[in-house]
Design a protein around this nucleic acid. Structure first.
Lengths: 104, 104
DNA sequence: GAGTATGTTCGACGTTGATCGAACATCCCA
DNA sequence: TGGGATGTTCGATCAACGTCGAACATACTC
C-alpha cells in the first residue's frame, strides 16, 4: 500500500482548522460570534465558563486558524467572524459547527 | 449574552466526529480506505508509521465516530468506509479530509 | 492623578490522548 | 498438532493542551 500523504502544508492547515473547531469553548465563541454583527462584540463579553487568560489562549487559536479577526478599539479588542474566507478554504466546516443539526 | 449551547447530545456527536477526524493517522486511514473497494482491505494492510496496538486504538475511534464499519473474515478484520452515512450526518466533513485542497 | 476595566503574559498544574511492548487470543495452513 | 499471521488487551510513558492565578500593561473615567 503506497504512502498516501497530501501536500504537507495543506494538511497542516487542515490540522489547525480542525484543532480550532475541535474545542467546545471555541465552538461556543464561534456560535456567539455568528449571531452578532461584525466588530460589535469584544473578547470579554462572551458567556463562557473560563477565566480571562484561558480566553486569550482560545482567541489566539481561532485567529491563527483564520476563523476570526481582531481589532483594537480603545480599551477593548473587537472581533469579526471571517466566515466567507474560512468557507472558501474549508467549505462546510464552519456551517457544521454553527448549525450542528446531527440526528439525536 | 445568553448561554448558547446546542442540544448536548448533538454537540457530543460533533465532538466525536471532529476528534476522530482530527488525528493525522486516522486521516491517513480514511484516505487509504477511500481509494479501495468496500471490504477489500484489512486493518494490517495500511501503510502507517505506528504499531499494532496503536492501530487498534485508532480503528476504535473511527468506528465509534461512525466513520467506518468492520467485519471479521476468518483471520482478518475487514473495513468499509461509511461514506454515505457519515456524509448525511456531517455534510462536507469527510470530503474535507479526503480532498483537502486548501490554498498552499 | 487615582482608580477601574479590559486583555496579555508567564509559570504551574492536571488530564487526556497517542504511543509502545509484552502477553494473550484466534484463526489459518502445512 | 504445531507454527505463523492477525488483532486485541493491558499497563506504562510522554507530550500536548486546557486551565488557573498572579503580575503586568494599557486605556478610559472621575
Amino acid at each position: 500500500m503506497s504512502t498516501d500523504s497530501r501536500s504537507p502544508a495543506a494538511d497542516a492547515e487542515l490540522q489547525r482548522a480542525l484543532d480550532a473547531v475541535g474545542d467546545p469553548v471555541r465552538r461556543s465563541i464561534l456560535r456567539q460570534l455568528a449571531t452578532a454583527d461584525p466588530w460589535t462584540i469584544a473578547c470579554g463579553q462572551f458567556d463562557l465558563p473560563v477565566g480571562k487568560s484561558t480566553l486569550t489562549h482560545h482567541f489566539r487559536s481561532l485567529v491563527e486558524a483564520g476563523l476570526l479577526e481582531q481589532r483594537d478599539e480603545g480599551n477593548r479588542r473587537m472581533n469579526r467572524l471571517m466566515r466567507a474566507e474560512f468557507d472558501r478554504r474549508f467549505p462546510g466546516l464552519l456551517d457544521l459547527v454553527l448549525h450542528d443539526r446531527s440526528a439525536t
